[in-house]
Amino acid sequence: MLADHEQDHLVDLLVATAEVIGDQLRPNAAAYMVQDLACYALPALEKALSSCRRELKGRLSLAAVLERIDDGHPAPNEAWAVAIQAADERATVVWTTTTQQAWNVALPLVEAGDKIAARLAFLEAYARLLKDARAERQVATYTPSLGFDAASRSAVLADAVTKGLLQHEAVSQHLQLAAPSPTFNPVALLAGKVEAAPGANEKIRARLEEMARELAA
């Protein structure tokens, strides 16, 4: 939900967008439009209004703004390409709740070995669920379905975090942390020498050189 100051900003954007395309929109009418738009993130609304300024001629309507909002829901075939990966229990899948619900409809057919019928059932269910979600102004919500392959699981989750689909805090316990690179040569240390490892940065190298001089003294 947009904060009050964001809603005020959106009113200004709506009025300005209408003017740019040759329309007139009074602030009180724009405020009514904001009531139907406030459930979306401001960047998505700004992008939609930018599209309106490029594409519309003469009239700005609520429907025109809504159809240009990227609500995060993947296209049906894109959703199926993600969902079918869940047929492999080793695979970790990051999908929308709508995709997951449609997959539950298709899963019995997948398990029966009929992927063609499963795809058709998925697409039909997904289209219905997507229509309902958009009618209720629901933006896409992503969740992980964890597979038992730990290495690929960590990579998929890290990628989803990078893309902003998941919050790091929500999946941090499933992410494998890379082992820290050594800053000194442990073999040389056993021989009484202090040597920096190849990956050590300049600050660490300087400190190790200082330690080496102290040991030599």
Rank of each mutant, 00 (worst) to 15 (best):
A3G: 13
D4V: 12
E6D: 12
D8R: 15
V11Y: 00
D12W: 08
L13R: 13
V15N: 03
A16H: 13
I21G: 08
D23K: 11
D23Y: 12
L25I: 09
A29H: 15
A29Q: 15
A30P: 07
A30D: 05
Y32C: 06
M33D: 09
Q35P: 03
D36A: 14
L42S: 07
P43V: 05
A44Y: 03
A44N: 09
L45W: 08
E46P: 00
K47G: 08
L49S: 02
L49G: 03
S51D: 12
S51Q: 15
R53P: 02
L56F: 10
K57C: 10
A63W: 00
E67R: 15
I69N: 01
D70L: 01
D70N: 11
A75P: 00
E78I: 03
W80L: 07
A81C: 07
Q85C: 08
Q85M: 10
A86K: 12
T92W: 07
T92R: 08
V93R: 05
V94P: 03
W95A: 15
T98V: 15
Q101E: 15
Q101H: 12
A102K: 04
L107R: 14
L107I: 08
P108Y: 07
P108F: 05
L109S: 12
L109K: 12
G113Y: 02
D114H: 01
A117I: 01
L120V: 12
L123Y: 00
L123K: 06
E124A: 13
E124W: 02
A127Y: 05
R128F: 09
R128Y: 08
L129F: 11
L130H: 06
A133F: 04
A133W: 04
A135W: 02
Q138V: 01
A140Q: 01
T141L: 13
Y142M: 02
S145K: 09
L146K: 02
G147H: 06
A151K: 10
R153A: 04
A155Y: 00
A155C: 04
V156N: 01
T162P: 00
K163W: 04
K163R: 15
L165Y: 06
A170W: 03
S172N: 13
S172E: 14
H174V: 00
L175D: 06
Q176W: 03
P182L: 09
V187E: 13
G192L: 06
A197N: 02
P198W: 11
N201H: 10
E202L: 13
R205L: 01
A206E: 12
A206C: 03
L208I: 07
E210L: 12
E214D: 09
A217H: 09
